[in-house]
Design a protein around this nucleic acid. Structure first.
Lengths: 202, 202
DNA sequence: CGACAAGTTGGCAGCGACTGCCAGACGTAA
DNA sequence: TTACGTCTGGCAGTCGCTGCCAACTTGTCG
């Protein structure tokens, strides 16, 4: 109760808040370092907690799951996606709107290097890929109503087509980012995305 | 060693083989029943083993992971996919070849009811979805060389486009099967697939 | 038939991710 | 300072999964 009230009022951060912030950052950095050094599956929660100087219990209180230690606020992606797409002008087609959403999400990364590091980790670790794909599925579901609103509304049955278009956009993003990682981050992902979409749409 | 030799020679199944077969079937049926009755995550390995009359250890020897208890030999999908696609006539385009592969995989299901049951379970359980998507990713990788062989070979850089086309085919299959499940198995999945692909390719 | 090799099974201990519970330490406000 | 709310660490326990070992069953050969 207290924390939410303060945050809403914009009150100055208390010592606790600062400590939390610090600990959170420390944990995140330790985790990312260990992941890149020795791999995701080979790094145990116990090790991260030890090197970050907190107990396992506390670590799990900050980050509910090992996946979340990757950082990069993946949960925010969904918000940015839906916001961006719904803010596109009404005369924009489905493909333009989706493209704008993809671009907005890609713009969230801090630096090219960090993005490359995370993408590489993601594409090379089966368990991470699975988790990421699952999150993506949820995003796709959230996008459904937005996309349907932009299609010629023939009543009923548009469901499948809207789903397909969304999934295709993500598929192109996948193909683009995989190729980007394979090329060690050379070029621009959006260019690859456009190339992919062009190949698909003939 | 022995088993492979016998299998290759087509020798009559020994008592062991028959026992194995029986136990395997019993486990599979028990698992599928419990999954549909009380949900995948709510069913523990211990419970399945108990009700199937085997030890946990033995259960894990038959099926290496809980996922595999879904049955339907998902690992075979990849084989069927690559076989079917590589057997398509050389003059068939990429999209026709992919369509044939998808159709072949869908034809693997025993009955409409069982397929619907599995699909429903899959689409409603986060952990299962994740595992399935991960397998699919591997299939996509396996398909890459086959698809590239069917494209106009401009050397280099075709990578991304081939990946995108494959991923799009799967995306349409996804959209189709989701819609199919939502409609309680009404209609034909391949029709939905065609509709999806048509929507995507404009 | 008897002995021996090979295959199969179950139990036990253990790992790693994750959770609930509880006591104690700490910052904060009266 | 006292009382309160919060945060922390530790412990035990669940669940999926694996390695190891002892016992049992089955097939085979002399």
């Amino acid at each position: 109760m207290k924390r939410e009230a303060k945050a809403a009022a914009g009150a100055p951060p208390t010592l606790w808040d600062r400590t939390r912030q610090l600990a959170s950052q420390e944990i995140l950095e330790t985790a990312l370092r260990l992941f890149t050094e020795q791999g995701y599956d080979e790094t145990t929660i116990a090790q991260i907690a030890r090197e970050a100087g907190v107990s396992q219990r506390t670590l799990f209180r900050y980050f509910g799951a090992k996946e979340d230690l990757l950082g990069g606020n993946q949960d925010r992606f969904g918000q940015v996606l839906t916001d961006t797409i719904s803010q596109q002008p009404a005369e924009a087609g489905v493909w333009e709107a989706l493209r704008a959403g993809v671009a907005a999400v890609l713009a969230l990364h801090d630096s090219r290097e960090q993005a490359l590091k995370r993408f590489r980790l993601l594409h090379n670790t089966a368990s991470l890929r699975a988790g990421w794909l699952e999150k993506r599925l949820r995003f796709q579901g959230d996008l459904l109503p937005l996309v349907e609103a932009r299609m010629d509304v023939a009543l009923g049955g548009t469901d499948a087509r809207a789903r397909a278009m969304i999934a295709t956009a993500f598929a192109c993003l996948d193909a683009a980012s995989m190729t980007w990682v394979d090329n060690d981050g050379k070029g621009d992902i959006m260019d690859l995305y456009d190339e992919c979409l062009a190949a698909v749409r003939g």
